[in-house]
Design a protein around this nucleic acid. Structure first.
Lengths: 132, 132
DNA sequence: TTCTTTGCAAAGCGTTTGCACTAGA
DNA sequence: TCTAGTGCAAACGCTTTGCAAAGAA
């Protein structure tokens, strides 16, 4: 099952994501890894992103946008998406486990968890607005 | 700005969604509307779904799946997605406005709202599991 | 050697769009 | 009449996949 062989490309992708605090798309990863591996193909990037997400070394996040984004931080945390600049930021806040219980109160099935992301205006866009 | 003309196709799509409690994809809408309008095109379905969502008569929901889903119920409510059968169900629960404040506590920007969906096992899949 | 990973290109899927025609006001 | 909406088909953006060659164990 776990027949993973080392690959320089995969390590590079993992390292790249670990160093970023924004949440790049597959294409952004591709563009950046290309500097180190000029011949790398987009397919390889996608394959490795999927694989890394599957084994839990990175997280795949879906912001409702067309393209998926990837996060090198696998610790549970929430995301904020700016309505103006579409930037995706991490939020420093506690886990909202209590909302699963609230949801469960009048539900016959079993609630195991939730996906939540917050939206609004990010600090730098707020500033720009105030300047006007 | 609001130069809307009546269209039988659009009305039919709206009515169809209002009568459904599941959350069909564009393709499911297309398949069903086709019974009434055999010549309707997928493009028309997509155009009307976007338009209706834009003017707030339906809601577009993104469950992280490949295809978007549409909801005839525009009142604020939360969704549950079954991990087994991928069914999307409505949840009867209060608004979680308080979580926006929690998120805002250590955030420099402005949080305006959140998207949340819950996941787990739906009632009918739970039953099947217990039968074994 | 054996089996995983790669690069490439083609295909996949859901969605959008240009265009000539149709239909609502 | 005038403009919005339609059907059709082609194109789009993101992602996946088949295949032969390359690389790790």
């Amino acid at each position: 099952m776990n027949n993973l062989k080392y690959s320089r490309q995969r390590e590079s992708i993992k390292k790249f994501l670990a160093e970023r605090t924004d949440h790049p798309t597959a294409d952004t990863v591709y563009m950046n890894i290309k500097e180190q591996f000029p011949n790398i193909s987009l397919g390889t990037v996608y394959r490795n992103l999927s694989l890394l997400a599957e084994i839990g070394e990175i997280r795949k996040i879906n912001t409702g946008d067309s393209a998926d984004r990837f996060d090198g931080n696998v610790k549970p945390h929430y995301h904020f998406i700016c309505k103006k600049c579409n930037q995706v930021m991490d939020l420093k806040m506690e886990d909202l486990n209590q909302i699963d219980q609230i949801a469960n109160e009048s539900f016959e099935g079993k609630i195991e968890g939730h996906f939540t992301y917050f939206y609004g205006i990010c600090p730098s866009c707020l500033e720009k607005k105030e300047d006007k």
